[in-house]
Design a protein around this nucleic acid. Structure first.
Lengths: 341, 341
DNA sequence: TTGAAAGCGATACCAG
DNA sequence: CTGGTATCGCTTTCAA
């Protein structure tokens, strides 16, 4: 912000008008190659850089996007999943000269339902990363400023990009069934979460597509923590018709179950096949073990950048709800049913 | 950025000049209480918010600070320690109307040694969070824009704030010695890191202050990973003069050692007392176990905010190198020497 | 192909 | 205590 050398200095040195300098810098093309070179050299020699203050005022955009976490940055970033999304996001934005303004929800939204940097026009739009209560999302929608839901979604007219958990779980079921599994159980957390809904729906669709007429009994989703979920799983294992495969809502849950199952002497994958979701870098005994659904998190971020930028450019673009394709990753945690490897 | 209602509208509605509106909004005091109220109401009714674009241009500050991570946001944020610092930092900045511009080092510093948003005047200064190679820090110093090293330091004229590992480790040693420990070992990683240096120095000073004439033999610092460090510790334990207490450079290392020691059947803390550093939330058997040095991470961030803001306000403020006081937290992992609890 | 000049929205000086 | 007004640095018509 301590710019001593303004566009004037450049114009002077290049013996032309500031308009021409601006045109050169913005590649407006309406400048002859000769002049262009002279200007560029002047810029170089003076070490000139456009002042975004002046620029922003004129173009009426800040070229800055707000990034909001809920409940706080700490919570989000502890999760490596989001960290990778962030990388893609930043990459996509930087490429277009955009930057991210950081904010935890708590701090920014003290009294007003909308962060003040939004309302102050510090940003051209907002990106909501993670699982926001839908009430909060509604507030943001009302602000009628460009908005993007990254890795989440609600049934309103807001752009959003998530991984295609629906198709993913259908594929998972298909794969398991092709290995002979008939009694498949899905494990999820009990919370309001679009991603979970989607995956559960995909799972159930998968079952019925395979003629397995699955239903609520195939899904355990009324428990919150690993410690609560495991006993429920254990109970099923001890029933007269134990599942031969378990689909966990994400890798974290899958790994937690695996640990407990092993402790209880259940042989994996012989007795029970397990599939996760996310393809977090999880190791077991030094090498990847868990079959899972790979989500290209960087791509998720990149696409997100594209989407929000598009909306900033023209606010009446039709709303886009994107589901990113996923890839099933087959590892040791899945085996054909009844086969003792 | 889509402000339809400018300061003009307010002035019109309040039947005064834009100058007065500005004065009211900035609490310049030179406005009568009556007018002031009228203006405030107009602002309210119109839902007016100052445009930071206009403001920034005029005051020649962006009221934005760049936050830089090395090597990438992902790396940093996976560490809960930094996450808490961030909270304090954000709190301190928001209070003063400042915001954080986010950037991973990789992306921002592709070719230029200094991120483009700095040079473009998008920010009024930079905050470097974490362990940067000193070469990189030097580059930033040259940029002669306000700079703050958060939780790190170099021997140049840059503001920095870290926890006082020196005094902390002296206290740790004193405490251990007061419990009868004479043979104390410090464990650290082999890397260039001001914090590690400081703590090691404090540790050694502590020893000599207690008349224990410790030396390099009391410090193991030539190894990189937990897996390498443990054998070295193990070797000491098996020697003719085994340590009775171990001071780990941080909680992570301490917990890693504890796990391995337990696996090897060493009774803790009877056979060996252990102290960590950071007071991360680490549990063992469901409750805090590890004696450690508590760092008020939020305060670290808050102080950091204060420092950089001060420098932005006046660049020729003398350089400040701050060491935040710490607190020794006594828990079960430390016991008097030779006492079998 | 180039330049002059009109703002963008706010702050702050200087008069009154 | 209040109001003109110059100015910040840039983009963008409109003329030439």
């Amino acid at each position: 912000m301590d710019r001593r050398v303004s566009i004037f200095a450049v114009a002077q040195k290049a013996k032309c008008s500031i308009a021409t300098v601006s045109n050169v810098l913005n590649n407006k093309g309406r400048v002859g190659p000769k002049r262009r070179k002279v200007v560029l050299r002047a810029v170089e020699e003076l070490g000139y850089q456009v002042s975004s203050a002046g620029r922003n005022l004129r173009i009426r955009r800040s070229e800055m996007l707000g990034l909001l976490f809920y409940p706080s940055c700490a919570q989000i970033f502890k999760n490596p999943f989001y960290a990778e999304i962030m990388e893609g996001l930043e990459e996509g934005l930087t490429k277009e000269g955009y930057h991210l303004l950081l904010a935890g929800y708590q701090l920014s939204v003290a009294d007003s339902p909308v962060p003040d940097f939004l309302v102050q026009g510090k940003v051209d739009g907002m990106i909501l990363l993670g699982r926001f209560p839908s009430q909060i999302i509604q507030n943001f929608c009302k602000a009628s400023s460009p908005l993007l839901l990254l890795d989440s979604n609600v049934e309103s007219a807001v752009d959003s990009v998530i991984s295609d958990g629906f198709t993913a779980e259908i594929n998972v079921v298909n794969h398991l069934v092709s290995l002979g599994h008939q009694n498949i159980l899905m494990l999820a957390y009990d919370m309001e979460d679009y991603n979970i809904d989607l995956r559960v729906q995909g799972f159930l669709s998968g079952l019925s597509m395979c003629g397995l007429n699955g239903g609520p009994k195939n899904v355990i989703r009324d428990l919150l923590s690993h410690d609560d979920i495991y006993p429920a799983l254990r109970e099923r294992m001890n029933s007269s018709t134990p599942p031969t495969a378990v689909v966990a809502i994400n890798d974290t849950l899958a790994m937690a179950m695996i640990k407990r199952l092993k402790d209880d002497g259940i042989r994996l994958p012989e007795q029970l096949s397990i599939v996760g979701y996310d393809d977090d870098v999880v190791m077991s005994d030094g090498r990847p073990f868990l079959s899972t659904v790979r989500v290209d998190k960087k791509e998720l971020g990149r696409i997100g950048a594209e989407l929000i930028l598009k909306r900033v450019a023209s606010r009446d673009t039709p709303v886009v709800k994107l589901r990113l394709p996923t890839e099933f990753i087959s590892r040791e945690s899945v085996a054909p049913v009844g086969v003792l490897t």
